[in-house]
């Protein structure tokens, strides 16, 4: 009557997903942002973003293999947020904080948006 918890399991799984992404293995969607193409796993996008959840949970989109985001979305902000989804690290600095905030709002990543907002406020 005991249970063994592998305390780093969540991180180990995420690391492997990121390795799969970097090698473009089993990625099942391409996201186009202002002409730039990003390969990803739908399940990760859906797990991290309310926007992608809404898109891919629609039955008519279940086999969607490519998606274009609003042209107003900044590719750099999206790239940072995609890296965050796969690593838990958000590489913020003053030059990207605002665009990352706006992209996080667009992707309905409220907790990350709150963090970006606090980061910006702390710098002014």
């Amino acid at each position: 009557d005991g249970c063994i918890q592998f305390t780093r399991h969540a991180g180990d799984v995420l690391l492997n997903f990121n390795r799969l992404r970097s090698r473009n293995i089993l990625t099942d969607v391409t996201v186009q942002v202002d002409g730039q193409i990003f390969h990803a796993h739908k399940a990760i996008l859906v797990a991290c973003s309310g926007f992608f959840y809404s898109v891919f949970m629609k039955p008519e989109n279940s086999s969607l293999g490519a998606i274009s985001l609003d042209p107003k979305v900044d590719p750099k902000g999206f790239s940072l947020l995609l890296d965050f989804m796969y690593t838990s690290f958000l590489n913020l600095n003053d030059s990207v904080a605002l665009t990352t905030l706006n992209t996080a709002i667009y992707l309905q990543m409220e907790h990350v948006a709150d963090t970006c907002h606090r980061f910006i406020k702390s710098r002014h």
Partner: peptide, 21 residues
Amino acid sequence: YEGVNTIKERGRSIHEIPRQD
């Protein structure tokens, strides 16, 4: 798992997919 005695295993939990073959 509430109420269950939990033993913490802090080592790697799964194999590591290589960066490149």
